[in-house]
């Protein structure tokens, strides 16, 4: 297997290419939380099928690629309280901020959107503090 940073760069280029296809093909911003959230709260009812097909692609391609890997593991915690608290924060937070790592981070920063840059600074700072607090101080993760 290649060094992690090369796979990271390669994967990143594919992520950006996905966003480019979505933008030039359909005029839409590839933001995962917006695409999912619009299905959940009904605000994206008018193009629900397009959202579902996009998410199907996201879900299915890793299944296609998994056989080429010796092992795939998310190393996700089995602590239910942590999972529920984290999932709720991510769900509420991304919808309140109108974007996540893909929408604000990738699509926003690449067009020098002030909102995208500010959001990214805040979620990275909060993420760093969260790891310090929950890993190094409280020791729950």
């Amino acid at each position: 297997m290649q060094p992690d940073w090369i796979m990271g760069l390669l994967g990143g280029l594919l992520i950006g290419l996905g966003g480019a296809v979505y933008l030039i093909g359909s005029g839409r911003i590839m933001g995962a939380s917006g695409i999912i959230g619009g299905l959940v709260d009904g605000s994206g009812r008018s193009n629900a099928l397009e959202r579902i097909v996009f998410l199907a692609g996201v879900f299915l391609m890793p299944i296609v690629l998994t056989p080429f890997y010796k092992a795939v593991d998310t190393h996700i915690t089995d602590n239910l309280t942590v999972l529920v608290a984290a999932g709720l924060s991510v769900g509420v937070g991304t919808r309140m901020a109108n974007g996540c790592t893909s929408g604000h981070g990738v699509c926003g920063i690449s067009r020098l959107s002030l909102r995208g840059i500010v959001a990214t600074v805040f979620y990275i700072l909060a993420g760093g503090l969260s790891v310090v607090l929950f890993r190094h101080i409280l020791g729950v993760i």
């Binding site: 995962a32 939380s33 999912i36 998410l55 996201v58 879900f59 391609m61 890793p62 299944i63 998994t66 998310t74 190393h75 996700i76 915690t77 942590v82 999972l83 608290a85 984290a86 999932g87 709720l88 924060s89 991510v90 769900g91 509420v92 937070g93 991304t94 919808r95 309140m96 901020a97 109108n98 996540c100 790592t101 893909s102 604000h104 909102r115 500010v118 959001a119 990214t120 805040f122 979620y123 990275i124 700072l125 909060a126 993420g127 760093g128 503090l129 969260s130 790891v131 929950f134 993760i141």
Partner: peptide, 27 residues
Amino acid sequence: LVFGSVLFGIGWGLAGLCPGPAIASLS
């Protein structure tokens, strides 16, 4: 924007997942 991003960041650090990867890794 600020409040939501801070809340998102806390959850992101806590579990190490954001919305895209959460769907990609479901299988």
